[in-house]
Design a protein around this nucleic acid. Sequence first.
DNA 1: TAGATTGTTAATCGATTAACAATC
DNA 2: TAGATTGTTAATCGATTAACAATC
Lengths: 218, 218
Amino acid sequence: MTAGLMTEGEARAGERLTVGVAARLSQYLRVLTQAKKMGQERISSQEMSEYTNINATQIRRDLSAFGKFGKRGVGYNIDGLISEIRKILRTQGQHNIALFGAGRLGQAIASSTVFADHGFNIAAAFDTDQGKVGQPIGDSTIRDYGELKDAIREKNIIVAVLAIPPEEAQRVADDVVGAGVKIIFNYTEALLHAPADVTVHTTSPAVELLYALYFHLT
Amino acid sequence: MTAGLMTEGEARAGERLTVGVAARLSQYLRVLTQAKKMGQERISSQEMSEYTNINATQIRRDLSAFGKFGKRGVGYNIDGLISEIRKILRTQGQHNIALFGAGRLGQAIASSTVFADHGFNIAAAFDTDQGKVGQPIGDSTIRDYGELKDAIREKNIIVAVLAIPPEEAQRVADDVVGAGVKIIFNYTEALLHAPADVTVHTTSPAVELLYALYFHLT
DNA sequence: TAGATTGTTAATCGATTAACAATC
DNA sequence: TAGATTGTTAATCGATTAACAATC
């Protein structure tokens, strides 16, 4: 340790988090955000554990690596903890994202509050169906697919959400990567190719179900 | 090791998998299923690594714990590997699931092939909106919420998927638990209470996005 | 004070990875 | 044979957990 005047918390915050820690901190943020919405002001590591399936000791350990955020005998202040975790994850601001596909899934995503709750703003939505162009989707308006490049550059978008048929996924992925997108959120089952500096995250509910079922069956 | 005549692979298969191994095997199944759909017959650990973001050595290690499924210099046969992993995860048959909510998200889930691809059959779909009851959804028909208990018992359903407004989530969770459901797939942002023998899995796309963004920013 | 809950230690266990011989 | 890719080893690193003193 060559931290000098830094406290241990500050020293760690300067380093890159491990994959596991970042994933868990994000989960804590989900629970805290929702508990706040429900009007709750404090929360214990035990309660967070029940909602995340993460061991309570692990939660306290994760948090105490960055500072003493809790009060013994009381728990954690929700507002304060949200703000601390956002600092650690460096996601305090607003982030513009682009949505592709205005079908049922796209509409469902656009009208949900989950993205907005965490600071993600659907700054542009696209569909190739000319009949849909110009119609409203969430707080936005469906744009023509041809405007993709300009819109992404103009609004500094680095996240694209794909809610389109799987056959179109690779083409759209190629197009958004060409326009500067760095994170692709793939709601299709297609296997996507992308350059090494682009992260592809594929959500697969059936896979998570398989895995939950295994632990039920054994 | 008291395995006696058992091979190491068989001995391990008899034990409960760790959480990490089961999660990774499920991921491999997702990639294999889709690659098969695309007409591919063989796959290397390197290619599976690109699609899952899991290290190729880790993949070979996971698989070789259960047997020698690959051919050196060639790779893995996709059909054979799917069958082996299904055996290990004990999810070879069909599983009936119940869908709650016939709005945009529910409709999107019901018309997707992802669940069917992995052996999950939407055996019953419910909505409280009387105007929707009787209408088709996917290959099924929307039923009245009041029929929940009978339907779940009759079809031996242990998985419920919630695609409903968050305000209704806890009530529906309580009802399905009362009817015998053991796994709740929660697509709402509500924090759900459930007995210890029931698994609640909450999908939170915004949380996964936060986490992906962290690694992009650092 | 008494009860509750955090912060921290210490010990164990599993995940991860590079490297490479085996072999298709 | 030459090239490719698996199966396996060995070493390191991080995750996990119980337990409990500190303290609100």
